[in-house]
Design a protein around this nucleic acid. Structure first.
Lengths: 245, 245
DNA sequence: CCTTGACAGATAATCGATTATTTGGATAGT
DNA sequence: ACTATCCAAATAATCGATTATCTGTCAAGG
């Protein structure tokens, strides 16, 4: 009746803070931890898109009180992953073809803008960060058979794209881009368990990164745009094929 | 000790739902009402930028409990008007020259994009809405001596800019633009009590709107860009002059 | 005189219980 | 049979009290 009889959430052994007590990622409060767990649950598809979130059930599932639960959900609204209506509660943001297409379009628009700015004003440290993020991503295997590698890859992939544009010196823009990546990742996690065969994604990332640190504005932007566009097309096909919606 | 001994917030006689009971703007819950009141308090400068929000004091000021207060504040985070840190509480987002410049740049980028899209796919109803918003705005006097006219003008001005781009069919993009307008309005409300003399803002709005409904893409976008840019420059000067920061 | 640690007041986070709202179904009237 | 109205269960919102965390101050030790 308490925590884990509802298989949907399956917490991964992290109830006790464990011995390596120091260096907590800033996830101090229950509300913060919940936000993280819920975010992962939504992006990974564990929580179905469009479904209603029953506060009482969630409260029992996570074994917490209402206050931190609402707190956590409220943060996911900022991320665009959860919607809310007065007296009607929370629900997981629905997915749709139109939504995916908007995300792709906006990513093309904003990320390219941010990349261009990064190349214009980014410093050497930014360049270093990009190369490091690229290396770590490319050296990480993505094995559909082992979910933990998928998660790890997703994390690094996300990190790469964010690092790429992190030199732009525009926090609000970065916030928007992070948000769009969140939304986009959900589609990928749900529909793509592996990279589609006809793409060498590693190479695409390398081309973008190398163009970026070489400050070859047009080349890098073009590569990034194509990269985002291809991803969008792939996801659209999967969405259509699997007949969701 | 309770509601209105702290002059800062001065609620405008809206405790009782009054007789015209139907058609409540959807601001049902205390949390929602608080979000609105706080948003207005922040944008109007009533709550100083960068200042800490003491939950206990706010609770007493508004005469509510913690839960709805946090609820309301959480929503303002999505709006970029409030920042939050675990165990450290909430604070009004600070203002700065860099922040203002980013907002202006992003508005130029995003609003122009949204306007172009609106002109591309907007329907006749959109055109009508634009003309109506323009008319209502231009017919509203902005008298620095009477604060209520300022508020009214701000509301209509904001409405105009949002309507202008509302035809684009991209909800996420609109959300971003609304957010940027929020942030921008705060600077204007604080620094400009009246239009600067060398501009005919009414005419600027008219030019943009007419270009938009005539689907003269380049003209309308250019007018809008100039409009945003001028506003940015004005605000920057005021910010520098008044020596904030 | 400076640093370190402990204490106390202030502040934030959480909980359990209570109140308000919504929703679906049953009932009465046409 | 069909609609409208009223109940009751489900669900969301709010409250008051409790617990946890932080922050500044002061004293002891170096």
């Amino acid at each position: 009746m308490v925590a884990d009889d509802d298989g949907a959430f399956a917490p991964t052994t992290e109830d006790a803070p464990s011995s390596s007590g120091f260096l907590d990622d800033g996830k101090n409060t229950i509300g913060s931890q919940l936000a993280s767990r819920l975010r992962e649950a939504i992006i990974s598809g564990e929580l179905q898109a469009g479904s209603k979130i029953n506060l009482d059930k969630a409260r029992k599932t996570f074994n917490v009180s209402l206050s931190p639960l609402r707190e956590g959900l409220a943060r996911l609204i900022s991320d665009g992953l959860v919607e809310f209506e007065d007296n009607r509660g929370y629900r997981v943001s629905p997915i749709s073809l139109a939504n995916l297409e908007e995300i792709t379009t906006l990513r093309e628009e904003f990320e390219i803008f941010a990349l261009r700015e990064s190349m214009r004003v980014g410093d050497v440290e930014w360049e270093g960060n990009v190369m490091r993020a690229l290396h770590r991503l490319n050296r990480t295997e993505r094995d559909a058979a082992r979910p933990e590698t998928l998660e790890r890859w997703e994390e690094l992939h996300r990190e790469f794209h964010l690092t790429l544009i992190s030199g732009c010196g525009k926090p609000i823009l970065l916030h928007f881009c992070r948000l769009l990546l969140n939304l986009n990742d959900r589609y990928r996690r749900v529909f793509l368990t592996r990279t589609s065969g006809d793409r060498n994604v590693n190479q695409e990332h390398s081309e973008i990164a190398q163009g970026a640190v070489a400050r070859d504005l047009d080349y890098a932007c073009d590569m990034l745009r194509q990269h985002i566009h291809r991803t969008g097309t792939n996801l659209r096909n999967h969405l259509a094929t699997k007949g969701i919606l």
